[in-house]
């Protein structure tokens, strides 16, 4: 045969088929197969805060920011799973920050109470704010979410409420960087693993179905606007938490909490990490945030390099790092000669 052509064949590892469920505990090998990728994620995050002496406070703070972006990205990813493309994650972030500042400074509540309270009440308020526009789809919803944080920012600036351009300062401090990092790491884990589980339940399935075809879901007897509102509330929680937590970290919250960065970074992180997987949100944030710190030394060129990397991911790896790695881990690839074609 002169020219044998080959095609690439992908086969699931046998072990994968067996270990998708809880039965994996049956054998050590299968347990390790399941644990390994998870540990690869968990161990560095748990160890990193301990290395403050070696790495220095600067990179520890970068680590903290990466966790903030992770939470915002998780929030973005859940909204996207229901078909709501958010261009305004800063809304949740800023609302969380201002709520905790209000509770802490004006009502004198300690952070242990003001942060959770700001998280839940902030998420409720954001859900109410977005409820009227939930019927909008695709880019229209995105445009509204894009506008709301900017609108709030200018309102604060113009009316001088909530500290105006100065912001609200003197928030109660948190007990130190190491504790802060561990709290954030814990919340990020709850977010990643919790949302991954949620989206696999029947409830999560209904949410994903809304993205696919909302009329058909409605015809299935499901109150679509109500489910969307629930999804927005759940998605808002990690983001308002991040905003409230960081407000106490810096002990100040200002208009910059509604800045565009907090809307763009999470979106980009999910694109890099892999949409719909939640673990991708975390991976993406931990690639993106340190990268953008490193690129600071390039000055304005930073934006160019940043854009090129983004382009590479959007064009070259649209499934994101997480799904790519998952595929490589769970599948064999081999070349199979295509004899039928060769004979013709």
């Amino acid at each position: 045969m002169a020219n044998v052509s080959y095609r690439k064949e992908r086969i699931d590892r046998g072990i994968k088929a067996r270990t998708d469920d809880i039965f994996a505990i049956a054998s050590l090998q299968e347990t390790l197969y399941l644990l390994f990728p998870r540990l690869l994620l968990i161990v560095p995050l748990v160890v990193f805060p301990l290395l403050q002496g070696i790495i220095g406070a600067y990179w520890e703070t970068v680590f903290l920011i990466a966790l903030v972006v992770t939470l915002l990205a998780l929030s973005w990813d859940l909204l996207a799973s229901v078909g709501l493309v958010s261009l305004g994650q800063a809304l949740f972030y800023g609302v969380g920050g201002y709520f905790t500042a209000f509770l802490s400074n004006y009502l004198g509540l300690p952070p242990l109470i003001s942060i959770p309270l700001a998280t839940v009440s902030g998420a409720s308020v954001c859900t109410l704010l977005l409820y009227p526009v939930l019927r909008l789809r695709g880019v229209y919803f995105g445009l509204i979410t894009f506008a709301i944080p900017l609108l709030l920012m200018r309102t604060i600036e113009a009316t001088k409420i909530l500290g105006g351009t100065e912001g609200i300062s003197g928030l109660a401090p948190l007990p130190g960087l190491t504790v802060e990092l561990y709290v954030m790491v814990a919340i990020a884990f709850v977010g990643v693993f919790g949302l991954r589980r949620l989206i696999d339940t029947d409830y999560g399935l209904v949410l994903r179905a809304i993205r696919d075809n909302d009329r058909s879901v409605e015809a299935g007897g499901i109150n679509v606007p109500w489910y969307k509102a629930q999804a927005v509330f759940i998605a808002a929680l990690p983001a308002t938490f991040a905003g409230a937590f960081i407000a106490h970290h810096y002990q100040v919250v200002g208009m910059s909490a509604f800045a565009l960065d907090y809307s763009v970074l999470p979106l980009t992180a999910v694109v890099i990490g892999g949409p719909g997987s939640f673990a991708g949100a975390l991976l993406g944030a931990f690639v993106l945030v340190p990268l953008s710190e490193t690129l600071r030394q390039f000055g304005t060129l930073r934006v160019v390099i940043y854009s090129v990397i983004l382009l590479i991911f959007v064009v070259g790896l649209p499934e994101g790092i997480f799904r790519f790695a998952q595929r490589k881990y769970q599948q064999f690839e081999r070349l199979v000669p295509m004899e039928e074609v060769a004979k013709e």
Binding site: V206, S216, V217, G221, I222
Partner: peptide, 12 residues
């Protein structure tokens, strides 16, 4: 799984 959606409704 398409049928899980109606089966999840209040009626079903």
């Amino acid at each position: 799984k398409n049928l899980i959606v109606p089966l999840y409704s209040a009626r079903a």
